[in-house]
Amino acid sequence: MTGQPVLDVRGVTKTYGMGETEVQALRGMSLTVRRGEYLAIMGSSGSGKSTLMNILGCLDIPTSGRYLLDGVDVSRLTDRQLALVRNRRIGFVFQAFNLIPRTSALSNVELPLAYAGMKAAERRRRAMAALSMVGLADRARHEPNQLSGGQQQRVAVARALVTAPALVLADEPTGNLDTHSSAEVLAVLDRLNRSGRTIVLITHEADVAAHAKRLIRLVDGQIVEDTR
């Protein structure tokens, strides 16, 4: 399964603002990630890693260059097509968990499937399977405010993987967690990777990055280090 790359970034630039206030967040970046890879992207704040994350996650489009996700060029897609790509091919894990408040863990995990138009029974079955995978099947009926930070993040991971996406994108997933919860969440990610999922982890903590098998370091919108 190492044929077609999951991520294929070719000479991508991203510019914010115009004229005097113009800021180049990404300066011609190229990056290839193969299926099943476990990649960590490190960099200080302002290095362009958030911009890269937004582009990889199809939340933003590059100013120039090409970005192929799973063989599809997403840099020229419309809003509507981008929404579809986010739904089918990408699973997000955010630093702030970003679960929908006042909504049970199960419903949160079901949400991407609901947007995909799946029937309720099938959705429930898959969501429960995803929750068991992160070890929270017994917390399915709990609402986010009844769960600990680590549990919330594991629900978010379950939500990210429930659609069986080509890519799980984790943006500082342990940034808001204590050591114990961090270990729990990272263990889940490690397990996912072992079962063949492609994971891109964005972090600034070296010990978190150490979980990954490949490390990329960003400085001023350019890749300065790429070690396996």
């Binding site: 996650g57 939340l59 809003d79 509507r80 929404a83 579809l84 790509v85 986010r86 739904n87 089918r88 997000f92 970003n98 679960l99 929908i100 408040p101 949400l111 991407p112 947007y115 995909a116 939500r159």
Partner: peptide, 16 residues
């Protein structure tokens, strides 16, 4: 706003 952002990131189209 944040909830809307989450929904959009999870693939909610504009129309939904």
């Amino acid at each position: 706003t944040r909830e809307i952002g989450i929904r959009k990131a999870l693939g909610a189209p504009k129309r939904t």
